[in-house]
Design a protein around this nucleic acid. Structure first.
Lengths: 341, 341
DNA sequence: TTGAAAGCGGTACCAC
DNA sequence: GTGGTACCGCTTTCAA
């Protein structure tokens, strides 16, 4: 079987001709809940196989939904982003949706372009992992009947669904751990990518400090990368009164920070310096780091997103304004002392 | 402007009605090389904007190509895969194609399912990053006028385009570096994922050893992960006559290997042990590792792929059987001694 | 420059 | 159970 004759996509018409039946018969054969005799079905399947026919799902969408979901994302190489992408694509596939990845920069113009593509391709839904789309674009997307889901951006755009992580609770917990370790000069290392999540982690950490009457040094490191963390440590430890406990708003920053502290300044972690990260990327668990951090519950987030799309989540479309926020459990490893030094 | 009235996708017809023109006029307005009066154009654009209209690219494809490219890939979280995905999606977008990511397992059944999806969604091309599709599926894809591009799989499937990296040259170079460092007990750490690339690296390394009259110990580590590398080192150094120079077929394996060697056995790298990896993932350059490795020229690979798709590459569709193979430059860092100890 | 009409690949509804 | 027909949204003749 399978003769590989045609040079362009095989259509139902061709199959019908070859099988000596009508196009309707072909269509029915591939629609479950059909009404086809065993005989025709056999003929159709045989012809289809010989020709290498596959139903055109794109043409199908002219009547129904496309089953396409667009993922708008930047910095795909970053472990946490790759992780989100991985689990989302897998879970979406599992419910019969395909994922088109729109790889953008985080600026509004790029995200805007991506949002338009999403509309052009009639995606059932747009999931935004990075960047913030303009409110007006979200409006048109919604108006076009598309679902818009924002992940880890605390800003509520009218009508969009939001799912993310409780940054406040983690930030407070981070401060607690550092204080318990007896740290006295505490800093938070942030990123120049001032996304809602990152900002929230920083802000709540500083506020928690305020409440306990201690001043937190805020150092902005640059883009959210290993190198930025590395550079931040270099700057911090080159001056007097360096910190002995730091919360990095991202694991990647933390890992770079640790490496500089250890290899450039000979500091020992956690003896001389305690470090906490956020995300629980795979590398945080590597033997060289053993970073104490907070886990992004990717599984839960992705499940929730998929739930929203298949409509099983309580807050159906256009309905529930409630943002879903999951608690990021602390992952206790070895970069923080359990007790004062 | 923009009134957000409709509840489902806006069509050209609606725009036409609102603008008081024909559907053809709307279509022309959005096709360049049109033939529309400034006046109608204005009316159409105004109506389109008010309604939030976006041309349905899916319906468009009923006549022309879809501009969809499917990427079949497994282990997306792996840095090297994330890197490929990142650069490919960006370059494809730059030439007006969108990428649907089919996240599969590497086994033939999963890849087969993905290949079918690719056909269902009328992708112009399928790019396979992991796993090997059955030859018959490749045939039907080609027969349907789809391009099939295999990345880093040395097996030539009839009619597919191949692009990858010269594993042989790197493997030989790796042996040379280890020998020059004075290593006497040399091993290669491989993966249980016996992909063509990984196999080639192992095989050429062993052969190069043979040619120089030295026996290479082959140790199969398990899946291509950090943990596998870690475990391999544990096993190797627990027994007598452990290696003093090892080539890991993947950076991830190498990083795990290094960590176990250092933290579990107190070995110093490169003084007591030389390690070489492959891929040049970002982590290989981190201060804790400084792994000497071979670079996957992602930029070149992706450019070549895009070139094939837009037809600018010499070996046009159905034509050139020549596989494109790029040389992976050695990235000299600090995990290998420059001279014998 | 413009609108009417046909056709792209499917599905759904209609008689038969 | 089956084939004919209309329609999904768009582009492209073809006349006007």
């Amino acid at each position: 079987m399978r003769e590989a004759t045609p040079t362009s996509f095989v259509s139902a018409k061709m199959v019908a001709e070859r099988a000596g039946v009508s196009r309707s018969a072909v269509s029915r054969t591939f629609t479950d809940g059909a009404s086809v005799s065993e005989e025709t079905r056999r003929k159709v399947l045989e012809a289809a196989d010989a020709l290498g026919y596959h139903v055109n799902h794109l043409a199908r969408q002219l009547r129904e939904r496309s089953n396409i979901v667009c993922l708008i994302v930047s910095d795909v190489t970053t472990p946490i982003r790759a992780g989100m992408l991985d689990i989302l694509t897998r879970k979406l596939q599992a419910v019969g949706k395909i994922t088109v990845v729109l790889n953008t920069e985080a600026d509004e113009a790029s995200v805007g372009r991506a949002m338009k593509l999403t509309l052009h391709y009639r995606a059932d839904a747009t999931v935004v992992l990075s960047g913030t789309p303009s409110s007006s674009l979200v409006q048109t997307a919604l108006a076009n009947g598309q679902e818009v889901i924002l992940i880890n951006r605390d800003d509520r755009l009218n009508g969009s669904e939001n799912v993310g992580v409780d940054n406040a609770i983690a930030a407070r917990e981070a401060l607690f751990l550092l204080r318990r370790a007896g740290c006295e000069r505490i800093a938070v290392v942030t990123s120049s990518a001032r996304t809602p999540s990152l900002l929230a982690r920083e802000r709540h950490f500083v506020e928690a400090g305020l409440q306990e009457g201690i001043a937190i040094a805020v150092v902005e490191a640059g883009p959210t990368t290993y190198q930025s963390g590395f550079d931040a440590a270099r700057r911090l430890f080159a001056r007097s009164n360096p910190p002995d406990g730091v919360f990095c708003v991202t694991d990647l920053l933390a890992l770079g920070f640790m490496d500089a502290a250890r290899h450039e300044f000979g500091l020992r972690i956690p003896q001389n310096l305690c470090v906490i990260g956020f995300d629980n990327i795979e590398q945080a668990g590597w033997e060289s780091y053993q970073l104490t951090t907070f886990d992004q519950p990717l599984e839960k987030i992705a499940s929730h997103v998929v739930g929203l799309l298949v409509g099983s989540e309580p807050s159906g479309r256009g309905g529930g304004r409630e943002a879903a926020v999951f608690e990021p459990p602390a992952i206790w490893r070895k970069s923080v002392r359990p007790l004062p030094a």
